[in-house]
């Protein structure tokens, strides 16, 4: 059991990071901390994917010297997935930050519970 954990330490680390990120996104009240949590969560998945595609002793899958022998290179597909994932995560982060800025300008707070209260009050009046 312990040996397996040591052997797959990258997967273990990425799952722990995923948990940290997930918890922060779910539980933090501060919107910026939530966004940081989301980024930790996404990065954990990229670590997991990248570690899955890595084969020790091989090169990055870029054929610079004309050598196309696949046994020289690591699996390129997880790297491609990571790149796609990063694009998605960047755009989602940008959207979340933009929303946070708009909420902050309106309610002068980053605390989502406080904002919820203010919105309810605003509606009652």
């Amino acid at each position: 059991m312990f040996d397996e954990l040591i052997h797959n330490y990258l997967a273990v680390v990425s799952m722990v990071l995923f948990g940290i990120g997930f918890g922060n996104l779910l539980l933090q009240k501060n919107l910026i901390k939530k966004i940081i949590g989301m980024n930790i969560m996404d990065t954990a998945v990229y670590l997991f994917l990248a570690s899955m595609g890595y084969i020790s002793g091989r090169l990055a899958p870029i054929a610079t010297d004309g050598n196309t022998d696949p046994s020289r290179y690591i699996n390129p597909i997880p790297s491609g997935l990571v790149l796609t994932g990063i694009v998605v995560s960047v755009s989602v982060t940008a959207l979340m930050l933009a929303l946070t800025v708009r909420l902050y300008r309106r309610y002068h707070s980053l605390d989502i519970d406080a904002i919820t209260l203010m919105v309810q009050q605003e509606h009652r009046e």
Binding site: F22, L25, L26, L31, K34, M38, V92, L95, M96, L99, T100, R102, L103, R106, Y107, I112, I115, T116, M118, V119, E122, H123
Partner: peptide, 16 residues
């Protein structure tokens, strides 16, 4: 304000 808050809540749950 209400829409913005709803959108943030939607995004948080969706991102999870």
């Amino acid at each position: 304000g209400r829409n913005l808050l709803a959108a943030v809540k939607y995004m948080i749950m969706s991102l999870l």
